[in-house]
Write a protein that binds this DNA or RNA. Structure first.
Length: 261
DNA sequence: TATAATGTTCTCGT
DNA sequence: AACGAGAACATTAT
């Protein structure tokens, strides 16, 4: 459940379900997902306290604990947070389970274990340590243009670099490049002002559209690549099949007609 | 059975 | 210093 819109929906889910309930116990089923906290540290920090606030920066989640510290959660490639009203129906790949005093539970599951869960005394120091740039939905145009265009690297690579801006992953970077007709290998410092503005504006539109669609790609507006991002599908503007290439070890989809180098 | 998967981080080489 | 390629992490689905 990886990129910014998916993570934002998880945040909202937690906000609506787990917030305010006092934690009675914490069970770590796989210590491999802990980062910056031990099992004992987690138990000590959380037991007897409630999550009082949710926050998201890029793909990173933060939950304020009643004692002033923050629980940090990254969903990696396959992570999710599940609220269980009666504590039953534990997901197969549950890694950490939080049981509330009222009998409900809150679960961190992550099949591939690329995610991480831990503690930090300060969000700012955590973001600094992880070298996360501004949130992709919060960054202003000037800042975006300045940060992106300073790199002599393919624009796809720059958009995926979480230290430039945080929250964009492989799928949404493909989508915004397609929306703006920019080739994934175009060098960031060679883009003109119009292209940079287009990317900034459409990044916000694409991310918000996906959140509004509850990340159901079928419900995205017409003309979106993500409605049919498959090798056997084609450009919605009537051009040919998608072309694919590897950029940063990830598969990039693009339309060679719409996105010229 | 081989390949790829919405992510991050590290090494090695240019 | 900046950058790219490749590997590593773990597990499933096609």
């Amino acid at each position: 459940l990886p990129e910014l819109p998916e993570v934002e929906l998880v945040r909202r889910k937690v906000e609506a379900s787990a917030l305010g309930r006092t934690i009675a116990s914490v069970e770590v089923l796989d210590i491999g997902v802990l980062e910056g906290a031990s099992t004992e540290g987690l138990k000590t920090a959380l037991t007897g306290h409630a999550l009082t606030r949710t926050d998201r920066h890029g793909k990173q989640l933060f939950f304020r604990i009643g004692n002033g510290r923050w629980l940090t959660v990254h969903l990696g490639m396959t992570g999710d947070l599940i609220f269980l009203e009666d504590g039953r129906g534990l997901p197969r790949f549950t890694r950490v389970r939080f049981d509330f005093e009222d009998g409900s539970s809150f679960v961190y599951e992550d099949m591939r274990k690329f995610g991480a869960i831990g503690l930090t005394p300060s969000k700012a120091s955590f973001l600094e340590r992880k070298r996360l740039g501004p949130d992709a939905l919060a960054i202003g145009r000037e800042d975006f243009v300045e940060r992106v265009s300073r790199h002599r690297r393919p624009i796809k690579t720059v958009l995926l670099d979480q230290s430039v801006l945080a929250g964009v992953g492989n799928l949404y970077s493909d989508e915004v490049l397609f929306q703006c007709g920019v080739h994934p290998l175009a060098l960031a410092d060679g883009l003109d002002e119009d292209q940079l503005r287009c990317l900034h504006r459409n990044l916000a539109i694409v991310l918000r559209s996906s959140i509004d669609a509850r990340t159901d790609f079928d419900q995205l507006p017409e003309g979106y690549m993500l409605k049919a991002r498959h090798p056997s599908s084609r450009c919605p503007k009537g051009h040919g099949p998608w072309h694919m290439m590897k950029v940063n070890g990830r598969t990039a989809f693009f339309c060679p007609q719409c996105q010229r180098l």
